[in-house]
Amino acid sequence: MQQLTEIRWHARAGQGAVTAAKLVAETALELDQYIQAMPEYGPERMGAPIQAFTRISPQPIEIHCNIENPNVVVVLDESLLATVDVARGVTEDGVVIVNTCKTPGQIRTELGLDSGKVACIDASGIALDTLKRDIPNTPMIGALAKATGLFDLRPVIDHLQKTFGKKFTQDVIDANVACVTRAYEEVAIDG
């Protein structure tokens, strides 16, 4: 794992980006990393574009500010590409992961990205198949694990089972595990 990984999440309020940012941080903590996960809070309500952030590092994290130069960008809602500059400041070797049916090539063109990686996953489709609801956040974590190599599928699943086990039925947990697994396997990566 590199020194400091900075992940910026783009979504609409209600899509679970904050939860995803948190789940990723918690998974990293299980791997004895230092972590930060914070939503960018505002008075916005359901549907508004929002950002959230995750930092992961083997060293204690001392900075407290928004992420301007992310190593990873995760976009939970493809429609945001039209209105939000999601790739703003992304590092040369950064990874942009988008919930979309399009190919990485199409997205790369759309975003005008000529470096780094672009990864595409139909997270909404997977969520609808397995969860029967368009909650794309957990599939995006599967895609993120694969596309970034931050961690394997196993710790993600372990952590999901651990935290969701307190709140949800076994069916819901199984569906989420299926989501993550499918996304991990199906994500298309370019670069």
């Binding site: 940012a21 948190k22 941080a25 918690e26 903590l29 990393q33 230092y34 972590i35 930060q36 996960a37 914070m38 939503p39 809070y41 204690p60 407290h64």
Partner: peptide, 12 residues
């Protein structure tokens, strides 16, 4: 503690 920055961030 700093509002949101510390109050609402997940930290180790």
């Amino acid at each position: 503690l700093d509002g949101f920055i510390t109050t609402h961030s997940i930290d180790r």
